[in-house]
Design a protein around this nucleic acid. Sequence first.
DNA 1: AATTAATTTTAAGTAAACTTAAATATTTTA
DNA 2: TAAAATATTTAAGTTTACTTAAAATTAATT
Lengths: 219, 219
Amino acid sequence: MSIAIENFVKAIYKNGKRDNNDTKPGNIAKELGISNAAATDMAKKLAVKDLLHYKKYQELKLTDKGTKMALNVVRKHRLWEALLFKLFDLSLHDIHREAELLEHQTSDLLANKISEYLGNPKFDPHGDPIPNAKGEITTTDTSISLSNAKEGKTYVISRLMSDDKEFFDFCAQHGLKYGNTILVSKQFSKNKMTQTLINNNTILLNKDFTSIIYVNEHH
Amino acid sequence: MSIAIENFVKAIYKNGKRDNNDTKPGNIAKELGISNAAATDMAKKLAVKDLLHYKKYQELKLTDKGTKMALNVVRKHRLWEALLFKLFDLSLHDIHREAELLEHQTSDLLANKISEYLGNPKFDPHGDPIPNAKGEITTTDTSISLSNAKEGKTYVISRLMSDDKEFFDFCAQHGLKYGNTILVSKQFSKNKMTQTLINNNTILLNKDFTSIIYVNEHH
DNA sequence: AATTAATTTTAAGTAAACTTAAATATTTTA
DNA sequence: TAAAATATTTAAGTTTACTTAAAATTAATT
């Protein structure tokens, strides 16, 4: 299967996992940087290949086969991130960018070798779970999105769920790093803004960011 | 530049380095598993991009720009081979196959990180030189092709210059491994057959094989 | 609920990287 | 060196993964 197909299936999988859960062609198109028309075209094509269910104007839903493919790509992506993170001094953003390419050129054999070398890790440096060779995911992730965090509570950042350079630059700048502790000082439920305290600095995060930053309660 | 272009330029580079030195479209096409027509097409296209010189019915000659690109791809290929060889328990053939894909999805930054991690090696597990970031190659390779070896002399295998699975399987089976010692017991100059002694086993190699097995004199 | 706005789909078209078949040129060899 | 064999080129066509523009449908808003 082609890189375009792998990326398409992966985008649906990831979008389906998010808050909004919008897997209509337009959303996938935006994610992949292609036109809506191209996304519709591809959706029809993949329906024929039994990778997804397609009904006009409806959400795209992966079949079992499509989900399996998405999980396989995600597995390779996260294994590469874990390996590159371990071996080289590169930023999480750089590592993500490399993994984004390598994931499509990696045999199952090599993926297994990488996993074995790393001691079969269950989470990548972003805190995201790494599916195993069968596509199974460890779901003991108790984290919640920062947009659902409670005022006055302290949390530990467990995932920075994004591929966007700007986002990672922003994170690096403000101490929003995997494992760091933050205090949610104020939560504006209406427009989903969140005011947090990190290293004694108060920062305001809008919904775009709070919905992709995941945290665990700090005990 | 696309994968197809990178592979095309690499094939010319490699063919130009070999005995025959035949870089006409047909030969490149054979190497890449595409039709002659496709190779001619591509050659014309790359001439426009100033990657090679094209004249009808003549050999294809890389420009400086083309050579640079080829060396960059070769560098990435060999760095991947060296890294995978070091980290994982995989056959040279498997490693070659993975590197063949990864080489096109590797940023210069990552290539440099791999090189640094490995201690900036000058040769890969095949014994082939690894160009540095500037495209310079260490040419202190004193090895000769087995077809030019002398009767009665002992040699150390320094390169197995191939991408072919069958060849590597044959090598593995007969102890033709990087670093192993062999005795050339008889050399048939006419048809270029070579009779060698490896681990007390006599084997006969034809020209196809002796021209791609490189050796250094054993002292 | 009706109109406007936004999205999705259809239709038509493009570029890259191929293919096969036929025409043309070059090599080989008898 | 002329004929036969081989290789290269041209021409026409295919597939994949897009594009833009217009038509159809759904969603939002007042």
